[in-house]
Amino acid sequence: MGVFTYEMEVTTAMPPAKMFKAFVLDADHLIPKIVPQAIKDVELVEGNGGPGSIKKITFGEGSQFKYVKHKIDGIDKENFTYSYSVIEGDALMNTLEKICYETKFVAAPDGGSICKSSSKYYTIGDIEIKEEDIKAGKEKALGLFKAVEAYLSANPDA
C-alpha cells in the first residue's frame, strides 16, 4: 500500500466561524441546495453526526460517480477543524483503500479565513495515482468551496 499526501490552501473573505458552519456543520443540507448537480443527497446512515458516524453522499446527475460513504474521524467546533475518511463507494475506483481528509479554517489578517486542507490517498497494492486525477479532484473541491462562499456572500443571514 502506498500513501500519497496532497495539501491545499484557499482564502476567503468569510470569517472562519461562518465558513466552518456552512462547509461542515450545515453542509449536509446546504451543499445539495447550492450545487444539486454535484451532490444530490447526504444521509446519516450510522451514528449521531459526531466522530464514528457514517454518511452516505449521493452524487448528482452530472457526476461520474454514484456515491461514497464518509466516516467522521473528528470534529472540533472551537478550533474549526474537521476530519473524515472516504471508506466506500465508486469514487475509490477499485484502486484506493480509503481517502482521509483534514480541513481547518484559520483567521486571515484581513478578517476572512484560510481553509487549509490535506488529503491522504491510501492505494491498494502498488497502484500509482495519476497527477491529473488528483488535480481534477482538487478542482472539484475548490469549485464546491467557491460555490459555498458565493452563496454566503449572496445570503449574508444564512
Rank of each mutant, 00 (worst) to 15 (best):
140 K>V: 11
114 I>M: 06
90 D>N: 11
51 P>R: 06
106 V>H: 00
39 I>H: 10
40 K>L: 07
19 M>G: 01
102 E>T: 14
27 A>C: 03
91 A>C: 07
126 D>G: 12
25 L>I: 12
126 D>V: 00
32 P>S: 07
55 K>I: 00
154 A>S: 14
52 G>T: 02
21 K>G: 04
138 K>Q: 14
53 S>T: 02
147 A>C: 06
152 L>D: 03
110 D>M: 05
118 S>Y: 00
109 P>E: 14
18 K>C: 01
107 A>M: 08
130 K>G: 01
145 F>T: 02
18 K>G: 00
110 D>N: 15
104 K>A: 14
4 F>E: 13
85 S>K: 12
157 D>N: 15
98 K>F: 09
138 K>D: 10
131 E>P: 01
86 V>T: 13
85 S>G: 09
136 A>M: 08
121 Y>G: 00
72 I>W: 06
130 K>H: 10
115 C>Q: 14
2 G>H: 13
79 N>C: 04
99 I>V: 15
102 E>K: 14
69 K>S: 02
146 K>F: 04
103 T>K: 12
62 G>E: 10
30 L>H: 08
15 P>M: 08
130 K>D: 12
12 T>C: 11
95 T>V: 15
57 I>L: 14
47 G>Q: 08
131 E>K: 12
107 A>S: 15
70 H>M: 04
64 Q>G: 11
29 H>D: 15
125 G>D: 01
32 P>G: 10
89 G>V: 08
119 S>E: 09
132 E>C: 02
67 Y>M: 11
93 M>N: 12
59 F>M: 06
71 K>N: 09
156 P>T: 05
88 E>C: 07
82 Y>C: 12
138 K>N: 12
92 L>S: 06
86 V>I: 15
25 L>M: 11
71 K>V: 01
117 S>L: 06
135 K>T: 13
44 L>Q: 05
50 G>H: 04
82 Y>K: 06
88 E>H: 11
107 A>H: 10
145 F>K: 02
117 S>I: 00
120 K>C: 06
66 K>A: 12
31 I>Q: 06
50 G>K: 11
94 N>F: 12
72 I>L: 11
91 A>I: 10
133 D>M: 09
66 K>Q: 14
144 L>M: 14
81 T>Q: 10
81 T>N: 06
31 I>W: 04
69 K>F: 03
120 K>R: 14
100 C>V: 14
145 F>E: 05
141 A>L: 11
146 K>L: 14
143 G>V: 02
89 G>I: 07
41 D>W: 02
156 P>Y: 07
137 G>Q: 03
88 E>D: 15
55 K>Y: 14
128 E>A: 09
106 V>W: 02
24 V>R: 10
37 Q>S: 15
41 D>H: 13
86 V>C: 10
59 F>T: 00
95 T>K: 15
150 A>K: 14
24 V>E: 09
126 D>P: 00
